[in-house]
Amino acid sequence: MSSTQNVAVSAPVSDGTRSRPSRAQGRRSALRWCFIAPAVGYMLAFFGYPLVRNVVMSFQHYTPSTFFDGRAPFNGLANWRAVFSNPLFTDSLWHTLVFTLGSLLGQFTLGLALAVFFSRRFRLSGVVRAVLLLPWLVPMVVSAVVWRKLLDPATGVLNTLLMDVHLIGSPLPWLSSPNAALASAVLVNIWIGIPFNMVILYGGLQEIPTDLHEAAALDGAGVWRTFRSVTFPLLRPVVTVVLVLGFMSTLKILDLILALTNGGPADSTQTLGTVSYQLSFLQLDFGQGAVVGNVLILISAVFAVLYLRANRADFGPER
């Protein structure tokens, strides 16, 4: 995929000064940077600047009047202390981890099972696989609203269904009980994430030569054994990418929870994302919101290292 660097050279044709960059070469390289510079500038403004700015903001005292009078004096560690001593922060950290890990576990397991299933040859396999992507492509807010109705204790179809088949005796309070709401949010997010996991893992499975499976079968390995000893190890790089990408995108989910439960009931579904949003944009304390945002970045960064390792092969033509 990235082993095509040999085509990239438009080698110095006319000048013989190969080793020492001439003025013409410098000009050419400057012209070439014109292709890249706008995108780099944009990314610095929309990703780099916010990263730096959030760190600075976390040491500033923002009030509702800050955006009128422009005053946000530095206040040392006050924001950090306030956030860390807020029980909601600890709760939301815990909720974030449960939500992220629970979602990943479900999405990945079911996505892998479906990927393996669809690797078999049968009629309509391709069409069904494509249509299954729909839950992932629909805006998250839409999914959240739809599930809010499905999980409605009184009029939701899920309770009706479960009661009709006598799996439950009385309606379950999916989103209305503090004990169940987070689990329900995980359930919804698993539903959203299955297609993404399925498609990437399916792609990975197709790269594994079928003769390996046949060889394993000849050696007397059963289906499960073949999967565990042959398929899964070969799939590992793809698995890493799926899990790390999944982790980073699940960690920062905000829209699903805001539209599904708005953090409630009784703050039982508050995550770092929703807490940061509420601190900044509802209480207008952007300093404390930035603290929570920084914690989110920190957690993300640990996993970004994993991601970059998984992508090591593709950093570019140099080296």
Binding site: R53, M248, F286, G293
Partner: peptide, 15 residues
């Protein structure tokens, strides 16, 4: 950039 949470961007961008 894929690891930068949207809320962090929004937080700084608003100002």
């Amino acid at each position: 950039t894929q690891m930068v949470p949207g809320i962090v961007i929004a937080n700084a961008l608003y100002g």
